[in-house]
């Protein structure tokens, strides 16, 4: 019973963290599919989400209003990132674009230090945070918020790309940009829309995790790297697979931390990345396509 409780506890923890990685990983996949760019600034959108929301709540805004406004603000930041950093370099090589996103990521962290300093901040839980006991395992309501919001966001994104007209136009740009252009679809506008949406989803991830693990200027880097690992596991072009990869990473980290050593949880994630790149570079769930990560 004790072991079962421990396993459940680690599973809850893993699912919570995995759901955050899933939100950020979706952003990675969307941006990669639409623009061909590996956006290493994706984690910083989560950081901005957390920090801006905390600031707005601190100014007296109700939490829901702060969440909505934060998502809008970070979406605009994502749009500016696309227009000012990605669009001017759209004809550059892939390594150049990757270096640009790394540079922007560093710049974002610098801006965050200037605004908020280096100290950590906390955001109140969304609701009363009385623990829920399941077989001696403890689940906080905020964990349920994290998992629930992530799942809803994932379904919303899948619905958007598969069922809405604009989403199908974005998909058309991903599949064949030239043909999409001939139909009057503007791939550059679709790129702006996709990156703005991905930034907004990243912000939501940061807002949801902030009540659980706090927020600071540096939280985005590791979140982004873990989400990148999840996206690679899924094959970088497959959003549902990236989500599965995210939960896999979250659960793996949680069990490593709980059963082995907390110092090794990051190492396990990146070891997983190396294994995938060596053995199945197209991703665990992708068919072999000749396109390596």
């Amino acid at each position: 019973m004790e072991i079962l409780s421990q396993v459940l506890q680690l599973l809850f923890s893993g699912l919570t963290v995995g759901s955050i990685y899933a939100l950020i990983a979706i952003g990675f996949v969307v941006i990669y599919n639409v623009t061909g760019v590996l956006n290493f600034a994706q984690g910083e959108f989560a950081m901005f989400g957390a920090m801006i929301c905390i600031s707005l709540v601190g100014m007296g805004l109700p939490l829901l209003a702060a969440v909505i406004l934060t998502i809008l603000i970070v979406s605009v930041i994502g749009g500016l990132f696309e227009r000012l950093a990605i669009y001017p370099a759209r004809n550059s090589s892939v390594p150049t674009l990757i270096i640009i996103t790394i540079g922007v990521s560093i710049a974002f962290r610098g801006i965050a230090i200037l605004i908020w300093g280096t100290q950590p901040y906390a955001l109140q839980p969304f609701t009363e945070n009385n623990p829920i006991r399941i077989l001696n395992a403890v689940l906080l309501p905020q964990n349920l918020w994290a998992i629930g919001i992530s799942l809803v966001s994932v379904f919303a994104m899948v619905y958007f790309f598969n069922k809405t007209y604009i989403g199908k136009a974005v998909t058309a740009c991903v599949v064949n940009k030239f043909a999409a252009r001939l139909m009057g679809i503007n791939p550059e506008k679709m790129s702006l829309l996709s990156i703005s949406m991905s930034a907004g989803i990243g912000a939501l991830a940061g807002i949801v995790i902030a009540p659980i693990s706090g927020a600071s200027y540096g939280m985005g880097m590791m979140l982004g790297m873990k989400a990148f690992v999840a996206a690679v596991i899924g094959g970088l072009t497959n959003a549902p697979a990236a989500i599965l990869g995210a939960f896999l990473i979250g659960i793996l980290e949680s069990f490593t931390e709980g059963l082995w050593s907390s110092g090794l949880k990051d190492a396990v994630s990146f070891a997983m990345l190396l294994l995938i790149l060596f053995l199945k570079p197209e991703g665990l769930f992708a068919k072999a396509s000749g396109k390596r990560v």
Binding site: K168, A169, T171, A172, N176, A179, L182, M183, G184, I185
Partner: peptide, 22 residues
Amino acid sequence: PERRQIFNSISVRDHLLLGAYH
């Protein structure tokens, strides 16, 4: 265009509807 330039993963219905995008 030459060689049709079809969207491989998009259905026939969606192809046609997207043709009216503008």
